[in-house]
Amino acid sequence: MSLFIDTVLRLAGWLLLAPLIPGVINKVKAWVAGRRGPPVFQLYYDLAKLWRKGVVLSHVVSPMHVAGVAVGWVALVGAAMLLPLGEGGLAFRGDAILFVYLLAVARFCTALAALDTGSAFEGMGAAREVSYAVLAEVAVITGLVALAVESGSLSLSTMLTPSPGAGVALLGAGLFIVLLAENCRVPFDDPNTHLELTMVHEVMVLDHSGPPLAAVLHGASLKLLIFSVLLAEAVLPLGAMPAWAAAAALAGAVLAIAIGVGLVESFLARFAFRRVPLLLTTAFLLCLFALLTAWKGSEFGVTESSVAERGAPAAEPFFGWRP
């Protein structure tokens, strides 16, 4: 029973808090520009309004155009539920890889829904999304290898909680760049642009409206929250803190990341598309050097947890309750 309540609470937390992040980012941007800006809760109002609206679909689209949005959204929720939040939760060896591939499912659905409309612009956006994601995914998996070497484990709950080693700054920088790329924030894409030719994510969802658009927007904010939490947990030694301090630190870190994204967006122009691969390669190299530092650090002593894990891989339960 407590498992059920725990799951529902975590789910509610993810779903309800996600739309806050874009609100914070927009507020920061408005402050920097000297405007008042929309309220922090603007996305909640938008989502509620969109959910009640009717739908306009293109003549061309298949049912996949709507259903794919839902599948992608569920994939993002699943990825979110794999991230550890305090005690308990879903955890098993290898869930880190499932996490990465659930994000890929979301990408697959969004890109296919974009191609479904037969629009040249949406095709362009889908092509950019799947191409840049190649480099972003490489960077993420390298970061995960670094965390796996650091902790000697392959489960997000143990990978993300121990105090990270010397390469934390490198890893943080790399993951931050990936966060910007995967969520189509400024140096890669401008969420506020109105020119279809230069968009990545926004152009893919041009033909969505009403409830599907609400799902897309909510999914996008959820993805932003997922990457923020991943970055925060990878960088902060949350496992070493008491529960309330860890929660506060996590919340603070996520807020700081949102503010950071807002500041980047205020002070940086977006890059030309030909510069995007270079920046993502840089993110990959940052993660790679974080991996190298972790490797050098762990060479001097294999941690006890890794020995225990490799000794008894079969004993892991279906729902791992971390002691």
Binding site: P277, L278, T281, T282, L285, L288, F289
Partner: peptide, 9 residues
Amino acid sequence: FIPSLLLGA
């Protein structure tokens, strides 16, 4: 730039 960056790394 990217090849030289990768080579340097």
